[in-house]
Computed example of a mutant assay.
Amino acid sequence: MSKDIKETFWKSLADSPYVMIGLTGERDHNIPMNAQLDKYANSAFWFFTSTDNRIAPGGPAMAQFSSKGHDLFACIAGTLRTETDRTVLDKLWNNSIEAWYEGGKSDPKLVLLRFDLDNAEIWTADASLKGLFKMATGLTMKEGELGQHAEVAL
């Protein structure tokens, strides 16, 4: 089950790469960010941000994700680090990112953060026919009748 749910997670994130992320242990609210994905890197994703953003210092972090169709939810633990490999920046750079940085790739406030993923809890909301019937009639639901849940290493 965990392999299937991991694959579903990555597909859902690629379809709508928006997460809420914050540094673990901080009392600041999490912020919305656009995850930059590399299909060959299944243990990390990246965020373009500015040096004055509250997540820019990096460190242990948590991200929350809800798929476009609200049929998959995830809470992802990992560590934010400054990405120093210029080839990664060049590979992920695109026009929608450039629109945010007046100085382009050389903007002094630009920082690329890599989110090294540790693990996640993932839930799917894919009710079985039996589960839908139970919900409609008020019968007691059993685990798995509304979807799946797994703790997975990413």
Score class of each variant (00 low, 15 high):
52 D>R: 03
52 D>S: 03
54 R>C: 07
56 A>Q: 11
57 P>F: 05
57 P>M: 15
57 P>L: 11
58 G>T: 00
58 G>W: 04
59 G>E: 02
59 G>V: 00
60 P>W: 01
60 P>D: 14
61 A>W: 09
61 A>S: 12
62 M>K: 06
62 M>Y: 04
62 M>E: 09
62 M>R: 10
63 A>P: 09
64 Q>A: 11
64 Q>M: 07
65 F>N: 07
65 F>M: 10
66 S>F: 08
67 S>C: 01
67 S>R: 01
68 K>R: 07
69 G>D: 15
69 G>P: 01
70 H>S: 06
71 D>C: 13
71 D>E: 15
72 L>C: 11
72 L>P: 04
72 L>E: 09
73 F>C: 13
73 F>Y: 13
73 F>S: 12
76 I>F: 07
76 I>T: 13
77 A>P: 02
78 G>M: 01
78 G>P: 00
79 T>F: 08
79 T>E: 13
79 T>K: 14
79 T>M: 12
81 R>T: 03
81 R>F: 02
81 R>N: 05
82 T>S: 05
82 T>C: 00
82 T>Q: 08
82 T>A: 02
84 T>K: 00
84 T>F: 00
84 T>V: 03
86 R>E: 10
87 T>H: 15
87 T>N: 13
88 V>E: 04
89 L>W: 00
89 L>T: 07
89 L>E: 03
89 L>D: 04
90 D>Y: 05
90 D>S: 04
90 D>M: 07
90 D>I: 00
91 K>L: 00
91 K>S: 14
93 W>H: 12
93 W>P: 05
94 N>Q: 05
94 N>G: 04
95 N>P: 08
95 N>F: 05
95 N>H: 15
96 S>L: 10
96 S>Y: 04
96 S>T: 15
97 I>S: 13
97 I>D: 07
97 I>C: 14
98 E>W: 03
98 E>V: 02
98 E>L: 01
99 A>H: 03
100 W>L: 04
101 Y>L: 09
101 Y>G: 10
101 Y>F: 11
101 Y>I: 05
101 Y>K: 02
102 E>P: 09
102 E>T: 09
102 E>G: 15
103 G>P: 08
104 G>D: 13
104 G>R: 14
104 G>M: 06
105 K>I: 00
106 S>G: 12
107 D>V: 03
107 D>M: 01
108 P>K: 14
108 P>Y: 12
108 P>N: 12
108 P>C: 15
109 K>F: 11
110 L>T: 06
110 L>Q: 07
111 V>M: 07
112 L>I: 04
113 L>I: 03
113 L>D: 09
113 L>P: 00
114 R>P: 03
114 R>S: 14
114 R>F: 01
115 F>L: 03
115 F>N: 05
116 D>Q: 07
117 L>W: 03
117 L>R: 01
118 D>T: 11
118 D>A: 14
119 N>M: 09
119 N>I: 08
120 A>Q: 08
121 E>T: 11
121 E>V: 04
121 E>Q: 05
121 E>F: 07
122 I>V: 14
122 I>F: 11
122 I>K: 13
124 T>A: 13
124 T>N: 06
125 A>L: 08
125 A>P: 00
126 D>L: 10
128 S>W: 07
130 K>S: 14
130 K>C: 14
